[in-house]
Simulated scan of single mutants.
Amino acid sequence: MKSVQVTGVGTTAVVDVPTPEVGPTDVLVRMRACGICGSDTFYISIGGIPPRQGETPLGHEPAGEVAQVGADVTGISVGDHVVINPIASRKGMIGSGGPGGALSEFLLIPDAVLGTSLAVIPDHIPFAVAALNEPMAVARHAVNRTQPKPGDKVVIFGAGPIGLGAAISYKRSGVGHVVVVDVIPSRLEKALAIGADAVINSAEENVVERLTELHGAGATAMGHPRPDTDIYLDAAGVGVVIDTALAAAKHRATLGIVAVHKKPVPVDFGAVLGSEVNIVLSMGYPTEIFEVTKDIVAEWEKFALIVSDEFDFADVQQALALAGTPGAADKVVVTFS
């Protein structure tokens, strides 16, 4: 079969590798779609992940069709459409340093267990949308970490895939109002299309003033005026977001951080002491990988808007190049004919 591997610093290749053999507890999935993540482009930039430096298989956002089922596996049948937990296997994470990657024609799921390793999805869900399951689980975990309550007023900084996924999850959790902040008009239009109640272009508007207009007036413990926003979520990863959120936070507001910050962000804790702000960080998806699957099945048309570019596997190098170009695309998904 053909598989995409990191072959050196800044280089990838489509290589021929043996199709995996299926043991009695394994499932073999014919890949039908795989998203490209920012971490994929990072792995390329450093030449792969030890101990597979120079030959790291790529792809950890998979959706596919079951091709073979081991004799001891129950609840899974050939032909089932599935999404996959890339961190479930004890034998190595899929596409993140393990022996297999989802940017391959086939993917072996060792010790496959329904509901732990993979989940079956309805046949009408497009595979390109199903491939969002993994990043949307990241977004769902970020939402869960902020512990939203019905009626809460939320602002999300960053209208990329994680921010948009979080917006859908917040709305499904029953919050009262969701605002999305970004500087790119097309992203803000997409945020409204997936269900955000309002958007703010931070390049053109004062975020704090606009939040006060949208969410009403709140205050710190000392009575200093603040927007009445309950939850701030950083899905952008730039220091000004942290500065803005902490300066705007009312008494006991929550700041969630799911974005990867590549530079240290200084915080004046004395200045925010009176807000008693709750700061929570979010990484991965301890329990959310198939929790979010239900959301995708229920509202797949909204999630479909998150996919900005689709490429056939034959053009995977072009897809990787686009995904690795800052600002060129929001979410690139590779599909398999």
Rank of each mutant, 00 (worst) to 15 (best):
187 R>V: 05
249 A>G: 05
197 D>Q: 11
244 T>C: 10
231 I>M: 09
309 D>Q: 13
282 S>Q: 07
255 L>V: 09
225 P>E: 10
257 I>N: 03
291 E>A: 14
264 P>M: 07
293 T>F: 08
198 A>C: 05
192 L>Q: 14
231 I>S: 04
199 V>E: 09
293 T>Y: 07
279 I>E: 08
274 G>K: 06
194 I>F: 02
305 L>D: 01
175 V>A: 00
214 L>G: 02
194 I>Q: 02
288 E>P: 01
273 L>H: 14
290 F>S: 07
188 L>K: 02
221 A>I: 12
310 E>D: 00
208 V>F: 02
220 T>Y: 03
281 L>G: 15
222 M>I: 13
226 R>M: 13
206 N>C: 03
232 Y>H: 11
218 G>Q: 09
236 A>Y: 06
227 P>E: 12
283 M>K: 14
246 L>D: 00
303 F>V: 06
298 A>P: 00
305 L>K: 13
263 K>T: 15
263 K>C: 01
265 V>C: 11
211 L>D: 05
279 I>K: 04
309 D>V: 01
232 Y>F: 15
306 I>A: 00
302 K>F: 09
301 E>M: 08
287 T>D: 15
236 A>E: 01
291 E>S: 12
216 G>E: 08
171 K>M: 02
200 I>Q: 10
214 L>M: 12
288 E>Q: 14
295 D>M: 03
246 L>Y: 02
236 A>N: 10
232 Y>C: 03
258 V>E: 09
309 D>K: 12
204 E>S: 10
182 D>H: 06
277 V>C: 11
193 A>Q: 12
182 D>R: 05
177 H>G: 00
202 S>A: 14
250 K>N: 08
295 D>H: 13
304 A>T: 06
181 V>Q: 07
177 H>P: 01
192 L>H: 04
281 L>C: 11
240 V>C: 06
205 E>N: 04
225 P>M: 09
178 V>A: 04
231 I>N: 01
177 H>E: 11
215 H>Y: 07
227 P>H: 11
229 T>M: 05
239 G>T: 10
308 S>G: 09
201 N>K: 11
299 E>K: 01
171 K>E: 01
206 N>Y: 03
297 V>D: 04
224 H>Y: 14
